[in-house]
Amino acid sequence: MTKRILTRRQIIKDATKAGIGSALLLNPGINLFGSDVTKTRVILIRDEKAVDTDGNPDPQTIQKMLDNAVQKLTGGADIKESWKKIIRREDIVGIKSNEWGYLPTPSALENWIKKRVIEAGVDANNISINDRGVLSDPVFQKSTALINIRPMRTHAWSGVGSLLKNYIMFTDSPSSWHPDSCADLAKLFELPMVKGKTRLNILVMLTPLFHGVGPHHFNKKYVWPYMGLIVSLDPVAADSVGLQIIQAKRKEFFGEDKPLNPPAKHIYLADTRHHLGTADLKKIDLIRIGYKEGILI
């Protein structure tokens, strides 16, 4: 064997020396317009009023959370300026959502993003919200900018349904991305319809799913009101933070380590193999805003 593979022992040894994932390659980062910020910054924002007792999102609260997170992420003086650091007025914007029936992207968030993009100067006709129909959507077909948004959940084959996995609808053969438990999902970001277009990633952690049973991999017993949003320019970093929270919840719930089955290796490989972003928590500038109880990270 010439290629060194990643074993548990290697991870333990690296952690002893310089922190888990010290061998991971640092992503060069994504430049904001008119900014020299290149750090892998991730905003984790939570609000205890984000969902009601039935888990339904409160539109006003989650809109405020999103605004606050985007402003903190971009460093804009106000909301409008913050969005202008992400979106140009001439952009054609695809908002890549997720319509999975049991845990879809809340429409209040989709619509709020659209409103903010319009306020940034984009014509409403040049904005589309879509998931499974992106390939035939004229706006997505000629898009110059993408906003990636979805709820995080465990997944029976890829470990988690992540921001990385959310782009699987940009291919007409999703199952061809399944080998090795979806190891190479990061390559989706190299597809012509996608490459270089992603401006913002929002991992919805309002009521994440931390475990799944049965063919549909959903049970209300395994969702909990985390009441958070994870916002970043780097989908790998956002996914990595979300993954840590899911793992921590599993340990809390089951009373012992219960690794995702199978592991969400596509997030790790998005960094080490495909260099799309950074999965190494030690290299992520995680900014926590708001409600701290039960934050799990």
């Binding site: 593979i5 990643l6 074993t7 690794p259 592991p263 290796k265 790790y268």
Partner: peptide, 15 residues
């Protein structure tokens, strides 16, 4: 081989 890490991470490939 996908299921070999179900309880305890051993390695990321089918060695």
């Amino acid at each position: 081989y996908i299921w070999v890490n179900s309880f305890y991470f051993i390695a990321d490939e089918d060695f």
